[in-house]
Amino acid sequence: MYPAAFDYHAPKNVKEALGLLGKLKDDAKILAGGHSLIPMMKLRLAQPKHLIDLGKVPGLSGIKADGKALAIGAMTTHWEIESSSAVKSKLPVLAEVASVIGDPAVRNKGTIGGSLAHADPAADWPAAMIALGAEMVCEGPKGKRKVGVDQWFLGLMATALKERELLAQVRVPLLPAGSGAAYMKFPHPASRFAVVGVCAAVTLDKQGVCTKAGVGVTGAGTKAVRAKGVEAALVGKRLDPAAIEAAAQKAADGVDVQADLQGSVEYKSHLCRVFAKRAITEAVKRAGA
C-alpha cells in the first residue's frame, strides 16, 4: 500500500505547528496517532499534500487532574488513558472506554484528540465526551478557545475545529459524589468500531433520586449525539429497572440512524435502546457502590 506522495513536517512546538497550518491551509492535514488518517491515505481516499506531525510537539500529551476536571492532552494515547492511575481513580469510565477501542496496538498509537478531531461516527470517545460534558480546548492563531462537546460534533466527520486550529486538550469534568458512569458497546465484528455505543453517567442523591444524567450515543448515526430524551426521563426519578427501561426507550430519538451491513435502521435503533438500558443500569449500580 503506497499512499500518494506528500511533504512531511514535524514542528517542534505548537506555535510552529500553527504557523504551518496557517501557511499550508487546505493542503495540510494534522497527523496525530495516524490510526484514522493513515489507513485512508493508504487506500488513497485521503491524499493530503502536507502532513503536520504533532508527534514531536511537547506538552500535547499527558493527563492532569485539578479539582474539577481531568485535562487530557490531545496527543494522549488510548492506552495511556486506559492504564492511567489518575483516570482509574477519578474517572474510571474513561479507562473503560479506552480499553474497548480497536485493539492493543491501535490503542498504543491512536490518540483521544485524533479521534475527536476525526469524528468518525462509530468512534467510542464521542459517546463518553457527551455523557460527561467534556470541553475541547482548541489552539489557533488567536490563542485558545473552549468548545463544549454539544457544539463540537457537526456532522459526518465534521467538527467545530477551525481551519487554522488544532485540538490541544480535552477537559473532562469529574463526576460529583454519588455518581456512576458506564460505557456499553456493540462492536462491529470486523473493525471493532461501535455499531452502537452508549455512555451513561448518572448522579444520585441520598434518596437514590437521579439529579443529573448524561447519555451519549455513538455508532448508529452520522455523528454521536446526546440522548436528551433519555436524560430528561432519568432526572428526578428513582432509577429502578422500570424507570431505566422507560428512559432507555428514547435512546434512538434524534439519532439519524444509518442502515448498513451491520444492521437496518430498525435494528440499530433497537440496539440504541438496549445498550442505553445496559449502560444506565451499570452506571446506577456504580453510583450506588
Partner: peptide, 11 residues
C-alpha cells in the same frame, strides 16, 4: 506493540 503498516518511517 505497534502496527508497522500504520506508521510512516519518518514518524
Amino acid at each position: 506493540a505497534v502496527k508497522a503498516c500504520t506508521l510512516f518511517a519518518v514518524q
